[in-house]
Every structure is written in structure tokens, then in C-alpha cells.
Design a protein around this nucleic acid. Sequence first.
DNA 1: TATTGTGGTATCCAACGGGTTACTGGAGAT
DNA 2: ATCTCCAGTAACCCGTTGGATACCACAATA
Lengths: 114, 114
Amino acid sequence: MSLRLRKNKASPPPPACPLTECMAILGGAWTPNVIWYLSEGPRRFGELRHDIPRISAKVLSARLKELEGQGVIARRVMPTSPPSVEYTLTELGRELIPAINAIVEVGSKLKKKR
Amino acid sequence: MSLRLRKNKASPPPPACPLTECMAILGGAWTPNVIWYLSEGPRRFGELRHDIPRISAKVLSARLKELEGQGVIARRVMPTSPPSVEYTLTELGRELIPAINAIVEVGSKLKKKR
DNA sequence: TATTGTGGTATCCAACGGGTTACTGGAGAT
DNA sequence: ATCTCCAGTAACCCGTTGGATACCACAATA
């Protein structure tokens, strides 16, 4: 009697995973937080810094540029003095919200059971 | 006329963000991929390596240990020779699937529009 | 006149994380 | 007798990332 395992031809790998693409967007540090805080409306650079106290200006700046480049957020300079800059989720960016919410929901569940 | 911007007391920051907790689970490299491939049924170490060709044994091993520690997956050694190990999503882990799916869906949308 | 607030940039640095390679042990297959 | 397969582990290397700090111009305010 062979104890060796079947070569498992019956379970082919699932279809290729599109997750890598998406995680390239959400992967950077603080990225989900930024999107989360923008999900309730436009927000300025300084406000975001205040929302996410432990983020550094450098990283926030980097994240915002990346997200802008990906079309997820829009940057608008206001003609004030000193100039202030407002960031908004684009329509594209707003499509991320359900995903973020799903993550949040699971997160709280996991937290409860721990 | 003051050009200075209001101190924006009208827009308090949104409630604290639970995302950090969740991203601690999904954050590691390849983690979403592992969960994704386990979402269709139990899978062995070598099969996962094959599913995710560019993952190294070291990282796969690390991810599986972490996820097991978080109660997201279960590890079962089969009494075969050579011994084979089967990984399964726990009930808790299965709760992650909607979130993963949401991410995948958004990912393909973003991909299309690029 | 000095200070504050704004939205950043430049520079340096330490740490973490992932990649690579080599290795294991024991039973089956050849 | 030797080779293969499985599921890892150990040791080392290296690049990226993020953190900390300092700094900028400019207008308004005190």
C-alpha cells in the first residue's frame, strides 16, 4: 500500500491572482489611512497630518503624489495665503471605499475574537 | 479682506481608523495571494509554492506561520511519506474572502481605466 | 519686528523585510 | 545504492522604506 500522496491533479490552481495589482495601490505605509480620511470629504495636507499623527510629512507627501498619479485622488491648490492644498477622492478613488470598508469590517471581527 | 483660510473647525477628523489593525494581517508580501489561493480549498505547501511561482520557501513559510498564529488558517500534517502538510482557511479566515474579493474587483476596474 | 501658518523638499540614517543559496531527514521509487 | 520528493530551516546579503531633522518662501498677524 502506497503512503505516497496523490499528485493532486484533481485540484488545479485557481485562476491567476489580480491582487498584486491592487495591493500595489494599497501597499504603502499609511495609504489605506489616507484614503479612509479622504472618504468623508476633501481634506488639506495639514489636516491629514493631524488626522494621522504618526505620519511624517515626507511619507504623506509621497503617498499623495502616488495616489494622484494613479488617479485615485485629485489635488487642488486654493488661492489663499499661505496657499493651501485640498485633496479629494476622484470618482475612481471612491470605488476603493467598499474595499476599505470590507477590510475594516473584517478587522473589527478579528479584533473581537482575539 | 482676509485671504487666510478658516481654521476648519467645521470638519473634525473622522473616527479613528481600524485599518491599521487589518493591514497588519494583509500587509506582508504575498499574504493576500496566499489567502486567495486557499479560498478555493485546502492546499499543500508545495502546491502554494507552485501557485505563486515567485514566492520563496522562506517567505511562504513565514506567512503561513503568521496566519496560523492569527487564527486565519489551520495547519494539518498528513501521515504520509514524505509527510505533507495541508493548509486550510479557518472559519475566521473565510471572513476575509469578501474583503479580498472587493480588493480584486477594484483592482480590475483600476486596471481597465489605466 | 518677530512670529506663525502653509505645504512641502533635501538629506541622512537605521531597520526591516524579502531574496538567494545551501542544507536536512527519512521513506519510496528506480 | 542512489536519487527524488516533501516541507521546511539557517545564514547571509542587500535594497527599499520609512523616520527624523532641518529648511524653504511668503503673507498675515501680533
